[in-house]
Simulated scan of single mutants.
Amino acid sequence: MILNVAEAIKAPGEQFPFKMEGRLEELSRGFDRFKVLSPLFIEGTYMALGESIFVEGRLKIRLETTCHRCLDPFTFEKKVKFREEFVKHLDPDSDGFLYSGDEIDLTDMAEQDLILSLPMRLLCREDCLGLCPTCSHNLNRGSCGCQPPEEEAQPNPFAQLKQMFSKEVD
């Protein structure tokens, strides 16, 4: 997803709008649990200041993954706002992206911003009931009939205090 920034370099400080669509075949960096279902849509503005190009906007994509509670596949649309800097020379204090010439590649930036915006645990719905701990039945589809595991009777460490306070009240 290449953005030609020649106009911005010739007119520093002026903002230029852009829209583009491209494919992410799969999300890399160990995030193979996502299947990409739609093209990646990016829109925003870019501006040159000195040797830096500032890109701001939003991206949108549709993904499929597995619910962390019930293990069923589900799809969702993710929208992410971004504001990034592209630089010609990366120094240790910079967290921008590199570019050269009159073009910047937005693919790595888009993928990184998308991955960083995802929650640690994705759920098919907020009230997902997950799996039965005994038989692994998906509880979103109804009860499994298993008896809940009996809790071992743990001695209450505050039982003695409760007895002391109940004697004082009498």
Rank of each mutant, 00 (worst) to 15 (best):
L131R: 02
E26P: 00
P119R: 07
L49E: 12
I104A: 09
V80E: 03
R141K: 15
L27T: 06
E56N: 15
G44M: 10
F74L: 02
R23Q: 14
D105I: 07
G96S: 03
L59G: 15
T45Q: 12
F76C: 09
K78L: 00
K10M: 07
P12Q: 07
R121M: 07
Q147P: 00
L90F: 02
E21W: 08
Q112E: 14
H68W: 15
M120Q: 13
T45V: 12
L37P: 08
L40G: 01
E25M: 09
L63Q: 10
P12V: 08
L59K: 14
Q112A: 07
E25S: 13
R58T: 01
N138E: 00
S28L: 11
I42E: 07
A48S: 15
C70Y: 08
L71H: 01
A48G: 04
D93S: 10
S117M: 03
G22P: 06
E7A: 15
E126T: 01
M109F: 09
D91W: 06
D105Y: 04
F18S: 06
F18D: 03
K19E: 10
Q15T: 10
G145S: 01
S143H: 11
C128S: 02
S117D: 06
E7D: 14
E51W: 09
S100M: 11
R83S: 14
C128F: 05
V55I: 13
S28E: 14
C70S: 00
L37N: 10
L114A: 08
S94L: 08
P119N: 03
V87W: 07
G142D: 01
C70Q: 04
D72A: 14
K35E: 13
R29V: 10
F18C: 08
G44R: 13
L122W: 02
E14P: 00
L59M: 15
V55Q: 06
K19A: 13
V36P: 05
L24V: 12
P92Y: 09
V5A: 05
P17L: 05
H137S: 11
A8K: 04
D91T: 14
S38M: 09
L71W: 00
Q147Y: 02
V80N: 04
F41S: 14
P17F: 03
R121P: 02
E85S: 14
E85A: 13
M20P: 01
L118E: 01
C144S: 01
M47T: 12
D93W: 11
L131S: 01
K35P: 00
E56F: 14
S28I: 05
I115W: 10
R58P: 00
L116T: 09
D93Y: 15
R83G: 10
M47N: 04
E77R: 09
P12A: 08
P17C: 03
F97A: 04
F54W: 10
K88L: 13
A48H: 06
G130E: 05
L106Y: 07
E21P: 04
K60Y: 00
G142M: 04
A11D: 12
V5M: 00
K35T: 12
M120Y: 12
H68C: 13
P92L: 11
V87R: 15
K10P: 00
S117N: 02
C128H: 04
A48W: 05
E51S: 13
L90T: 02
F76W: 08
Y99I: 04
C124I: 03
G57M: 13
P73G: 04
G142N: 05
